[in-house]
Write a protein that binds this DNA or RNA. Structure first.
Lengths: 335, 335
DNA sequence: CTGAAAGCGCTAACAC
DNA sequence: GTGTTAGCGCTTTCAG
């Protein structure tokens, strides 16, 4: 593995000169610079970053930890973050925390051991399981910014989508269409007052309505059971708010199996704006979380902290607004 | 940032002893070991891997480069590879090559500069654009294994799915059901003789049939146009082979819009076995590429090369077989 | 069982 | 402009 001294020998100059020449430093004679660069190219020399990083005490690496990569929301975010990070001249180190506590901790440890310059952390549904570890990371000088709301983390930098606002939009849309019997299907909320469900309920409350059914269902079987119960009701709901798009897709499937047509008999709204929503028929009305804004804000923030460009000690909280995407799965209720 | 010498000072021993104690070496007295470990824990000491990696001349890092993360096949693969790599005590460094040549080259360069111990490379549709670079990587002692067939790379290690065999299964299934008029929709083949399309055609040829239409269409609009043309035919095909699942989903959508029922009027088969296929109605008959086997084989191979456990100079070629997943989107043609 | 010393490959004062 | 030197934080001979 060819190194600096090798090409220094070839060129008949010192290592420092080679180092400078390759960094295109103005402190070196153009002729030696050309010579060195040419020699390096010919020899296929590439700097050893592990050595350089040790020397300069920086890795120009930003860590990103996400629970998993299978859930289609994450790939979008990962791609966007990767692009922004690269653009800024940094490198991304992705870690999959697998949604369990132990491995979230492992990711953070690994990032610290590799001396990442900053970390972006997307917590799993169970919230921030490693708060103290994050705090010590920050204390040790590695900025951490949280992606998504986490309970009891008010002292940490945070970039989040305004889920509650998205939920409110959904609720308002359905109410405005004339719906009064509305069911909710999906996971239990985990973002407390900032949850999409809380905004949704607020919208209904403003019109004096309460959701007539809130079921926790995520798997195919669970959704099937819930839909079965719902359509067996003497007076089934006229609209369903699915907590996530993929749940909405399951709702579509089982509503279809029960010969209930969307949106004629029941309107359906999702949340997340996955591509999936455009592949199903009718196309799904949903809420788009602006992953691009989140990625951009998060990367900017963590880099600002890294470079001490922003030495404001107060935690930053950046909230970006979602958008209601009107497609084909909603209509006024039939009378 | 606390380092080895700090805790050596605290413990009143030398750095070497601390290093050994933390590595749980048998060469150190149990009592000093306990003391050192406790002190290290209290102080929150974590090894600096960039220093260690420089010293030991290894990073225990495997690079994985994939074109993108948005295409749903990749997340599956990434997750699987990440799990296997971690299991083996290595770390994964993911790079997104963005499907363009320049950045595939950048990824490889970055991996080399960081001295990854091995790399797994998934090439984009345009084939291996950086063959010479891969070769010099290998020559410099970093094993590279290709994931997926690449033209003119017979001298490199390769793990691939037998796409042609999958295509054959699809063709045979359709023919066995009685179909004679079969259209193909999707991308142009890029795996030459190993392409799913070549296997598909072989199956038809064995029964003296030729596909009556092969259209290249990937976007929503393109598929819409193709479907429109197809159903306007005096004698429309009775079955459609979509080159990829997401194309199949689009086919579903536009067939639905044209009031053609699946599988009564037209059977549809996909390829890839994305989750998507179970969300649509009827559920999609498709071919599953065994991502878990591919991941396992690839990681095993690259690690074996890394550790010189396998110093066979001959390139390895591991081919894993796909599986036909029978679901609801196919039926015999109506007479 | 423990310590002293060397050195991984590179960059950056500091001299000349 | 260029070379000499020191040192980033760690592991690992080699002595004792």
């Amino acid at each position: 593995m060819i190194k600096l001294s090798d090409i220094a020998a070839k060129a008949g100059v010192s290592e420092s000169t080679v180092s400078r020449a390759l960094a295109d430093s103005p402190l070196v004679n153009q002729k030696t610079k050309d010579l060195v660069q040419q020699l390096a190219r010919e020899a296929g020399y590439k700097v050893n970053l592990v050595a350089r990083n040790l020397r300069v005490q920086s890795t120009r690496t930003i860590g990103l930890v996400v629970p998993q990569v299978a859930n289609p929301y994450y790939p979008k975010l990962i791609q966007l973050v990767a692009d922004r990070v690269k653009e800024a001249g940094y490198r991304l180190q992705l870690h999959l925390s697998g949604a369990d506590q132990e491995s979230e901790s492992d990711c953070l440890t690994s990032l610290y051991e590799h001396r990442a310059d900053g970390v972006l952390l997307v917590t799993a549904v169970n919230g921030l399981v490693t708060k103290s570890q994050v705090e010590s990371l920050v204390a040790s000088g590695t900025p951490v910014v949280l992606l998504g709301w986490v309970e009891g983390a008010e002292h940490l930098d945070l970039v989040m989508a305004d889920d509650a606002r998205g939920g409110y939009m959904v609720g308002k849309h359905l109410v405005d269409l004339g719906h009064r019997d509305i069911a909710v299907i999906g996971a239990r909320p985990h973002r407390g007052p900032f949850d999409r469900l809380s905004g949704f309920q607020k919208a209904l409350n403003e019109s004096g309505i309460t959701p007539n059914l809130v079921s926790s269902a995520r798997s195919d079987e669970e959704v099937q059971a819930v839909i079965h119960d719902l359509v067996s009701l003497p007076k089934p709901p006229t609209a369903i708010f699915a907590y996530q798009d993929f749940v909405a897709a399951l709702v579509f499937k089982h509503l279809g199996a029960a010969c209930i047509s969307i949106p004629d008999q029941i309107s359906v709204v999702g949340f997340d704006n996955l591509d999936l929503g455009t592949y199903i028929c009718p196309q799904l009305t949903t809420v788009d979380l602006p992953a691009d804004q989140i990625a951009a804000e998060a990367v900017n923030l963590v880099l600002a902290r890294t470079q001490n460009a922003d030495d404001d000690a107060n935690p930053k909280r950046i909230v970006v607004s979602p958008e209601l995407i009107l497609r084909e799965s909603c209509a006024p209720p039939r009378r």
